[in-house]
């Protein structure tokens, strides 16, 4: 069963998608800037309401899933991840705290951090992190959540290509091991080649499956 299925989905003259399937595994979403890639991710997470059409997540119309529950199953990482004032741990625990769950265990938090190549202490001030480190910190959050699917909006835009490939390679491996599917917006063809099993192109006001 596909992770997401869209049927006749229209949104504010930005997107008009007759039919689209997002399969299990890693799907790269590509296309020119401003074409509606971020909007597509927001529609999948019910953060935007389409004028018409149906979106199904694993066969269930997303309107039948409580919105907050949907977003807990399918967290979305926005393009410029938020770093809240406080420590690295405060930031790793951001999703847990927003979901009003207990903080992740410090061991697991440190492990997630190290997996993505960050060497900071958990009690270091997060305010001094660079753009690339912030992105990795935000990705490390997801490793602590065990989600069903993750939606990533240009998660490595602040990283150089080598680091991006290494970080995403690790992330994909760890998430796949936990059975998590990934939908990834990116401009990097190297990343598409290295990580993606499927590809969706957003352009000209619509979205369609494409060959890798």
């Amino acid at each position: 069963m596909p992770v997401f299925e869209l049927e006749q989905v229209r949104f504010r003259g930005v997107l008009d998608i007759p039919a689209l399937r997002i399969e299990t595994g890693v799907t790269a979403v590509t296309g020119p800037s401003g074409a509606g890639k971020s909007t597509l991710l927001r529609l999948l997470d019910d953060l935007r309401e389409p004028e018409s059409g149906t979106i199904r997540h694993r066969g269930t119309d997303i309107r039948e899933i409580p919105a907050i529950e949907l977003r807990r199953r399918v967290p979305m990482l926005s393009q410029s991840p938020v770093v809240v004032p406080g420590t690295v741990l405060d930031n790793l625990a951001r999703a847990h705290r927003l979901q009003e769950r207990p903080d992740p265990a410090p061991d697991a938090a440190a492990e997630a951090l190290a997996a993505l190549g960050l060497t900071q202490d958990l009690d270091a001030d997060a305010g001094v992190l660079s753009g690339g480190e912030r992105q990795r910190l935000a990705l490390a959050r997801l490793l602590l959540l065990t989600p069903d699917t993750v939606l990533l909006d240009e998660p490595t835009s602040a990283l150089d290509e080598d680091t991006a490939l290494r970080v995403m390679g690790t992330l994909v491996r760890l998430l796949a091991a936990g059975g998590t599917d990934i939908v990834l917006v990116t401009h990097s063809s190297a990343l598409v080649d290295a990580c993606a099993e499927h590809r969706v192109v957003v352009s000209g006001g619509t979205a369609r499956q494409a060959a890798r």
């Binding site: 907050i68 977003r71 979305m76 990482l77 926005s78 410029s80 938020v82 927003l98 979901q99």
Partner: peptide, 17 residues
Amino acid sequence: RDAIEDALGLGAAPRAA
């Protein structure tokens, strides 16, 4: 706006976001 939407995307209730 972006920070609040980021929080919703991580599964926050509007009240928490």
